[in-house]
Structure formats: C-alpha cells, structure tokens
Computed example of a mutant assay.
Amino acid sequence: MPLPGVVVAAARGGGAAEEAAGDSGFEDGIREVLQNLTSVLKTLEETTDAPLRAVLGWLTRRDVGFSSKSDASVQCMPQEIPEEVSLMQLVCAEPTNPGIIQLLDWYHGPREIVIVMELMESSVDLSQFVKMQRSPLSETQVRNIFRQIVKAVQHCHSRGVFHRDIKPKNILIQISTEQIKLIDFGSGTLLHNQEYIRFCGTWLYAPPECVARKSYAAVPTTVWSLGVTLYMILCGHLPFKTSDEIIKYRFNITRDLSEECEDLIRQCLSFSPKWRPTLEDILVHQWLC
C-alpha cells in the first residue's frame, strides 16, 4: 500500500539543566540525525505515489511539536529501545489496524530519539475538527468516528498496550473521509491485570480514582477517557472543568441527545470503575449497533 507521507517526530531526554542550556545544540543534533535519514527518506519517496513530506517536532516538556504532551521527556540509554517506540512496535505489527498511526522507523541521535511515522494527509486532530464545524456533529457522524476510536483502542489492548492518554488531541481525523488514527503513545505502558499506581495522561480525561491518587485499572480508566472524549465531540466542551468536579462527580449533558447516546455516555462515566462497561460492551451497545 502506498504511504501517504512521512512524519518525523523527535523527542529528547534530559531535564531542566539541559533545557536551560538552550536549543541550539539540540537543533544541531537533529540536523545531524536528519542528514543520516536522507537515504531512507529518498527510498520512501521512491516507493510512494504521494509527495513526501517530513514534519519535525521537538517534543520537550513544553507543548511543542507534532503532538502535545504534558511530559514528553525520554529516558533511555544509547541503543535501548524507548518505551514509546516499543509500544508502537507492538501495535503496528502485522496485521495492522487502520485506526493506529504507523511506525516506519526510529533512530538514536546524539541526545534525542527520532521517530518516523506515516503522515495522514489533510488531517487535523479531533478537537480541531470539532471546532471547525459550523454546527455540532450529528450523532450519526459521531457514531462512525467513535466506533473507529473504540476499535483502535481495542486493538491496542489486544497487543498488550495501555495507551493511557485517550483524548481528541491524540486522535487524527482525515477531513474528507473522517477516517481516524490514534497517535502519541508517549504516556503508554504495557497492559496487565494488576492495578497501576502512577498516573500518566491528561487529568481532565482521568477518572475519579486517578484524580484521588488511588490505584486504577486499565480498562475502566480507558473507558472513562472514551466517555469524556465522546461527550466532548458531541457537546463541544468537556464534562468536567476541574479535578474537583471529577471527584465530586458534577456534570450535566448540555445537548439534546438520543436516549441511547446519553445512556452510553453515562455508562462510560460511571463513578465506580466496577460499573463501567468493557470495550466489547461499548461496541455492542444499542447506540453503536
């Protein structure tokens, strides 16, 4: 299958001391790495019908570059595979899922990791897509988008990957086709049945148990994030504005929705993780069938 293009995203490690030293050395390092990529990029250009475009993102502790992260620092020793790369290798192995951004290659630079990914042509993140619309998205439109998201997340779990940061900004959507791709595995980890202690992700998409600094399980946490995402793309804003509202469980559905749609949102946003549906339950819910 011809590749629509290539994205090159660079993530660097190091802390405040390195940041204080300035970005010039980092940029020089990136140039060196990209020079080493020339032959690879030329090969990719020869094997694709679409124009090849390389987008370089500097992912620091600030929200800069290709994807937005609260903490995108990379901790790895030379020649070790960074966790974000290893997770992408798992989810991108054959057979692939069309709802996952594909990893093409990755490289160690002097002080950074360069990740080469496919480029989704004419796409924006899902939050931008919602803002671009002159009127709220229809339930039919959202149903198609949300089903793709759930299937992409289900694929991640089937490969033993817990994304941990499901939100509209981490979902690309092609404007013409409304095909989605899940991106940014920087907060992810391996999926297991035990509860997790340390939270990574975006707080306003986190369930009460995470906000209360308690242990949390992968599937209920993911389902809550999906519920917040579904609410946001339907209503145009988040159900909770602060962590305190999440803890006190204060939210209202501010749009007139079908009974089935509202039921799915409320199930996903159940206060107790035991009450939330599984991914399989969501896919057979009456609103998605």
Rank of each mutant, 00 (worst) to 15 (best):
S68D: 02
P51N: 10
T43H: 09
R53Q: 07
K42R: 14
K69Q: 08
L52I: 12
P95C: 03
Q75N: 11
Q75K: 07
K42A: 12
L90N: 04
T43Y: 12
E94L: 06
P82Q: 02
S86G: 01
D28A: 15
N36I: 00
E45F: 05
F66M: 11
V55I: 14
E84H: 00
D63M: 13
E46G: 10
E32R: 15
S73I: 08
Q35G: 10
M88C: 03
S70V: 12
V91L: 04
S39Q: 11
T43K: 14
V85A: 02
G57Y: 08
T47E: 11
M77Y: 11
I81R: 08
E83P: 02
L90V: 02
G29L: 04
E80I: 00
A72Y: 04
L56C: 13
E32W: 05
R62T: 08
T43V: 15
V74W: 01
V55W: 15
V74R: 04
Q35D: 13
L34I: 09
L44P: 03
E45D: 15
T60R: 09
R53H: 02
G29R: 03
V64N: 12
P78W: 08
S70H: 11
L59A: 08
S70Q: 07
Q89G: 05
F66P: 01
I30Y: 02
S39W: 03
F66V: 14
E84F: 02
A93P: 00
F66Y: 05
L41H: 05
V74Y: 01
Q35Y: 07
P82Y: 03
W58A: 12
A54C: 14
L41P: 02
C92Q: 05
E94Q: 10
P95Y: 03
L44W: 10
V40F: 11
E80P: 00
T47K: 14
A50S: 13
G29M: 07
V74L: 13
E80Q: 13
D71W: 09
L90A: 13
V33S: 10
E94N: 06
M88N: 04
E83Q: 15
G65M: 01
E84C: 04
T60M: 01
S67D: 02
Q75S: 09
V55F: 15
E32H: 11
R61Q: 14
T48M: 12
C76H: 06
V74C: 02
K69A: 13
L87A: 04
E46N: 13
R61P: 04
R31A: 10
C76M: 06
K42Y: 09
T47C: 09
